[in-house]
Amino acid sequence: MKLVLNKDKMQIIREQDVVPFRNRVKEYATKIGMGIVNQTKLITAASELVRNMLKYGGGGEALIEVISQGRDNGIRLTFTDKGPGITDIPLAMKDGYTTGKSLGVGLPGARRLVNEFDIKSTPGSGTTVCIIKWKNG
């Protein structure tokens, strides 16, 4: 069972919101004592997902949660947008696949950087991506 210890919500609508958001995530990660490498992985994954949200979903909302499960603490980030959604999730999760002119490592790369990765999308109404990074994961 995952307990939520702390919650924070941020609106991401402009590019300039990304850096404050990353800093906020870093603050929470530091607070629970996450090591520098895991912190960097989490923030990098968050950065990829936020960029996707801005680019394809026209911005949205990011939820930062400090969670605990048993003896483990971690950070859960949930990104929700009301964009066009993704029609073929397995394809979008493939390395090297891109609709824009990026490198196509965003989604699959982000998944490799975190412990849990969950993506849900309804074409036409939006996408929700949820990631968890455990303190010692």
């Binding site: 490498v37 960097t40 992985k41 990098t44 390395d95 490592v105 790369g109 950087l113």
Partner: peptide
């Protein structure tokens, strides 16, 4: 480059 950044880039596949 910071060590943590290098490790993350490798994991990211970049």
């Amino acid at each position: 480059m910071q060590p943590a950044v290098a490790i993350t880039l490798i994991e990211l596949g970049l």
